[in-house]
Amino acid sequence: MIRLIQAELLKIRSTRMWLGMLGLSVGFALMGLVFYIALAGVEMDGREALPPVTDPDTVRAFYANASGGVLFMMILGIVGITGEYRHGTITQAFLVTPRRGRVLAAKLVSYFLFGLAFGLVTVLATVAVALPALAIRGGSTSLLDNDVPMILGGTVLAMGLYALVGLGLGALIRNQIAAILVAIGWVQLVEAIVTVALPQVGQWLPAGAVRAITRTTGGFGGMGELDTLPPWGGTLVLVGYGLVFAVIAMVTAVRRDIG
């Protein structure tokens, strides 16, 4: 098992795909953060665009930007499995380890860890920008208050779990482009619409779970506008999605012919 995880590490290290996904994840987080920094407490049309940095909600929103790129962890997972089908390297993997369940188990563990690691880097980058910005603007610089540990820790966990969801989705669909389009369509359209139109349903979706963990509404309004699960509930929901898609990945990849 350790050998197979080492092989996955070598696979991901030996092409440049991971750099792109990490760049996008960090880039999205910082882009959102810069937006918040620019607008927090600034008056527009006679009222504040966003609450000032002294408001705990704003502090939370600053750090919650770290989770802005969870989609890219999903894509990381998707590419992690569909790339093998696309290039035919899945044949090598299953020839070396004909017990396919082991290959998939190693992949799931590895991509969960990759997601966590990328999440950690994204969180560190976010903190590195948010902290000085808060200090300059007179906000709280404590990393222990305002649910900050929960938000940052939850983001790291969410990144890992989203990679698992991506693996499951990729194993199910197998076509890389189709799987990525489904992921983007889901996150950008389906979840976005359901979250606004049917928040009582939206809170049970992965995005709702991330919102619960990062203590944000996901929109620009304040807390409490949308139905949102408690943080532990969001964590459980997200873990549930990760496990369900892990099982999907296992079952689909283990049974199908590789032709």
């Binding site: 092989a7 696979k11 030996s14 092409t15 790339g83 290039h87 390297t89 020839l95 380890t97």
Partner: peptide, 27 residues
């Protein structure tokens, strides 16, 4: 040892890395 078709490679990976992946997985 099996060689099935000439397409089973990730184009972005070097030949050595491709083989090292198999070595690592196979111990």
């Amino acid at each position: 040892g099996a060689a099935l078709e000439a397409t089973g490679f990730n184009p972005g990976r070097s030949a050595r890395d491709h083989l090292r992946v198999a070595c690592t997985a196979a111990g």
